[in-house]
């Protein structure tokens, strides 16, 4: 592998549709970390909605598309622990042991990473050169935390942002109630969970709520906005990349 690894950015369907700024933040951070970034056109979604709904056949077909599209790269990086975890931890088990696709899924899984942990653990990034005036609180998204061990990496980089103060919320590791299709399949339960999360996040009186997964962020930001809260929300990559000209999630231009 060369000193300038080729990274295939797995944009994620939510970032692609709802918040391109997170994609640009990822591109900037990856380039700062000495990577060459490409965005394969043949990507769509990682397949989690089908996978977690029990539709294995469709998941398998979608996974084959992702595997084919990203095989040429040295690394696959996603600004999401959930999608990153899907490719890294779950793709292989979709295919029969000993099959060609299984082997290809395992190879791809081994070089797939969530963005922030990739920057810190693989590229050795220790700080970012940017500033952000204000206090933030950080929600640990479940898949990133428990499937990929993402906990200290975002905090380490946030500590290097000039002017930023991190105030930890209570139960930062407790699920926000998004859960992909869960939030629309069981809206009453999801609502109580996100209400509790909005409460614990607001209790630290932050200017900004940060997390590493757009699904969780849309859920939490959507609830905070509905409550009329002044707490804003961004993907952690936007702050680390200094790309904060774009209005926060769910805010008017």
């Amino acid at each position: 592998m060369t000193d300038t690894p080729k990274v295939g950015l797995f944009v994620t369907c939510l970032v692609d549709l709802f918040r391109p700024n997170v994609g640009w933040a990822a591109v900037k951070l990856l380039r700062d970390a000495g990577c060459e970034v490409d965005v394969p056109r043949k990507q769509t979604c990682c397949g989690q909605p089908a996978y977690n709904s029990g539709d294995r056949a469709d998941t398998r077909e979608i996974a084959k598309g992702v595997i084919s599209a990203f095989e040429p790269y040295d690394y696959v990086v996603a600004p999401s622990g959930s999608c990153g975890g899907m490719i890294a931890r779950h793709y292989a088990e979709l295919f029969d042991e000993g099959s060609d696709w299984r082997a290809r899924a395992e190879v791809l899984g081994a070089k797939t990473h969530e963005l922030i942990s990739f920057l810190v653990d693989i590229r050795g990034m220790k700080s970012v050169d940017t500033e952000f005036g204000g206090t933030v609180t950080y929600h640990d998204s479940c898949s990133g935390l428990r499937e990929l061990g993402i906990k200290e990496q975002p905090r380490a980089l946030l500590a290097s942002v000039r002017g930023l103060e991190l105030k930890e919320m209570e139960d930062a590791e407790v699920c926000c109630g998004f859960g992909g299709t869960f939030c629309v399949k069981y809206p009453d339960i999801s609502n109580q969970m996100v209400e509790r999360k909005a409460g614990t996040a607001s209790a630290t009186q932050p200017d900004m709520l940060l997390a590493g997964d757009l699904g969780c962020l849309m859920n939490m930001a959507g609830k905070l906005k509905r409550q009329g809260s002044g707490v804003q929300a961004r993907h952690v990559a936007e702050v680390l990349a200094g790309l904060t000209d774009e209005p926060p999630i769910g805010e008017a231009d």
Binding site: V11, F18, P20, W24, P187, N191, A221, R226, E246
Partner: peptide, 18 residues
Amino acid sequence: GNWTDHRDLPAPRGQTFQ
């Protein structure tokens, strides 16, 4: 409605990242 009954839906920016 299962989403918007309980929370706002943050809107896209008009163009996809792709």
